[in-house]
Computed example of a mutant assay.
Amino acid sequence: MLILSALALAQAAPQQGPMKTFGDWVVACDNVKRCEMTSLQPEGGDWSDDGWQMAVTRDAGPNGGWSIELIGEDAPKGVALKVEGAPADAIWRGDALTGAPAASLIAAMANGKAVVVRDGAGKAIGRISLTGSSASLRFIDAEQGRVGTVSAAVAKGAKPASAVPAAASLPVIASVRAAGTPVALSPALLNQLWTQSDCAENYEGESRPDVERHALGGGATLVLVPCGAGAYNFSTVPYVVKAGKVQVAAFDSSPGWTGDGPPMLVNAGFDAKTGEVGSYAKGRGIGDCGSAETYVWDGIRFRLTQARAMGECRGSINWLTVWRARAVAK
């Protein structure tokens, strides 16, 4: 029975989608083949020039369409996006570009050198490198099964769009609705948690931070034991207390920077309304790389509902989604 249970847990582990870097772009697809790509600051470039980025998304399936967003500090409406080296442009009106305008811009991006952002007077106010965008679009074609079809962005062929595989449904997780009151922790139990987690050594000679408690529902309480902090990341070890018993929280996919020790949540957050537990680990202070996960409690372990990541520390605040699931309260 124990072997069967272990096998069941292993089979249920989320298989996050792939992520690749091509030149000045990063591309990723999630577990249901919804794909995203986002621009990076060119390596060795002058980051002081501007902070413009472009984000591109395509849904899976024969009818999966494009969505393009311009990312920048207070990106003004009405600016023109012109592809250098290809005859295409579009006007940014503050909402995502979709439909024919997006498809036209994508077709040009595959052969262009850069997207130039121009204000109403025609002055260039931003430049987004397209180095690697064609390879990223080809990657999406392959992941979504579009190679050789008329719906491909780069790897086009004569096959109809109906030859593209149908979009898969999101996995459904039966979650426990957060309810009740978190249990009180006796001094003895608190001592046990500090000792068992090996987190006490991070606060020798100083007062220990408060231990957070959150009611998970069904009589279970999530306990977050502080375990050290840096300039922009605060780590905690999660425990579940129920019926007087304490155990390290179980996850179907490890959060944060979990290594050989217990699971470690980074900059943890708990939403009592949704019952979601979040971990947000920044690779550096400006938040242009790292990983983030969101979980729900199913009564036994925490189940991954979303995972986002950015492996390149090159100015992108647009982390890409590599896993999604839909939580339904029991």
Rank of each mutant, 00 (worst) to 15 (best):
Q144K: 00
S104T: 10
A174V: 10
A152Q: 03
S67Y: 07
I173T: 07
C227P: 11
D50N: 15
G148K: 03
F22R: 06
R34T: 13
I125W: 06
A327N: 08
G78L: 05
S175F: 08
V322N: 11
P238N: 06
W319M: 14
E73T: 03
Q11S: 15
V27I: 13
Q15K: 15
A108C: 06
A13P: 03
A80P: 00
S67G: 05
A292H: 11
T21S: 15
L137M: 14
K33A: 14
K330H: 08
G285I: 12
A309N: 12
I125M: 09
G219Q: 11
C29T: 09
L222M: 10
W257T: 06
K20L: 15
Q16D: 06
G287V: 06
N191A: 15
P18D: 11
P238I: 04
A325E: 00
T131D: 08
R213H: 04
L4A: 10
A229K: 10
N233T: 07
G228F: 03
N111T: 12
I128H: 01
S136F: 10
R58P: 05
M310S: 08
I286K: 00
G290E: 09
T294K: 13
G72Q: 00
C29M: 11
K77R: 03
R314A: 15
T294S: 13
G315F: 14
K113E: 15
V322F: 12
P14K: 10
L304C: 03
G205D: 10
P226N: 12
A329T: 09
A6M: 15
I71T: 09
V277K: 05
I286L: 12
V246Q: 05
A220P: 00
Q192C: 01
G259C: 02
T236Q: 14
L97Q: 08
D89F: 06
V83A: 07
A178E: 01
D252P: 04
Q53V: 01
V240E: 06
P42E: 02
Y280N: 13
W194P: 02
V27A: 15
C289Y: 09
V56D: 00
K245D: 07
S169D: 12
V32S: 09
L190P: 00
K123G: 04
P42T: 01
L216G: 12
I317C: 09
Q41F: 15
F302Y: 15
K20H: 07
T98M: 10
K20T: 15
V154D: 03
A86G: 00
V240N: 12
E43G: 08
E206C: 01
V296D: 06
